[in-house]
Design a protein around this nucleic acid. Structure first.
Lengths: 154, 154
DNA sequence: ATTGACCATTAGGTTGCCTAACTGTTAGGC
DNA sequence: GCCTAACAGTTAGGCAACCTAATGGTCAAT
């Protein structure tokens, strides 16, 4: 598995194709995110806060940064924007006065729901032009991609 | 969008999962692009020039912009950077003096090859931890993703 | 010969990320 | 009980890549 073997050609080819697919997908993502309302970075953060859920009264800034794959100051910056927009709230951590806990406001909850729905509709429109087999193939690959991403976040 | 469309729930779910996968993949892409040497945008452009190949002495700026999914001034900006780095060349179009034709230099060719190889190796390392079935599922989905992207570029 | 469309560049602004430096807090060694 | 090292987050400053609007040439069709 993790031998220092130089290069399986098949694996490298798959790697190249996957990179290519992701590279082109950037365009798709940009189109999806151009719907105004909420930037990609902000929606990502809101979604993350939603997923982390009502866990223990909020998520710490460092954890947010780690989950999003950015550095702490970048997370702070986005959090401040969300706070100013009334979508998130910053509160002191009762157990550790150095830390800050971030939670969604009701407005934030509504915003992430509506932005998500809108983007999903657009994406569904794109996917509707695919054949059933294509959709099945895509669906089968999504958990794999999820696993890849999870590996990297660890 | 259209209230006469009932919005197939399965399709919407797939759309959401796919969006989620792409959203998380941003982190992967960022890691791949952090190898110094060449930014993601620059490598994308070089790769595009390579793919468009030796076709008719270069690619026009507007076409580059369209292929990359950015506006013309953004393309110009990147081209100028590549030119300053000695990786691309700008020449007047003999058939239309308004237009500019962009081609790879030898250095540009070498740069895209080496950057690509490096990123492929990293990606292959990531993929090597997957099971054979996972890799097969991923490989089966890539043409589908390609089709999705092609649809959007049209 | 003029007008309007078109190609690319320039100018100016935004967003999102980074590193480095700083403030305040906690916890361990003595 | 201090003092210091490590830690959490913010502030400051800078950079890359995108955008829109305005500009300068060039082409083509009247």
């Amino acid at each position: 598995m993790n031998d220092s073997e130089p290069a399986d050609p098949g694996l490298l080819a798959l790697a190249e194709d996957f990179r290519e697919a992701l590279r082109h997908s950037i365009y798709l993502v940009r189109r999806l995110d151009a719907d105004g309302e909420l930037s990609a970075a902000q929606l990502s953060m809101l979604k993350m806060l939603l997923d982390a859920g009502p866990a223990a009264g909020g998520v710490r800034v460092g954890e947010i940064a780690r989950n999003l794959g950015v550095k702490v100051p970048s997370a702070t910056e986005q959090i401040i924007k969300l706070e100013r927009a009334g979508l998130a709230r910053r509160e002191p951590d009762p157990d550790d006065s150095r830390a800050v806990r971030v939670t969604l406001t009701d407005a934030g909850l509504a915003a992430v729901a509506s932005a998500n729905e809108r983007r999903n509709t657009v994406m569904a429109g794109v996917l509707s032009s695919l054949s059933d087999e294509d959709r099945a193939a895509l669906a089968a690959a999504l958990p794999v991609i999820g696993r890849i991403n999870a590996t990297l976040l660890a």
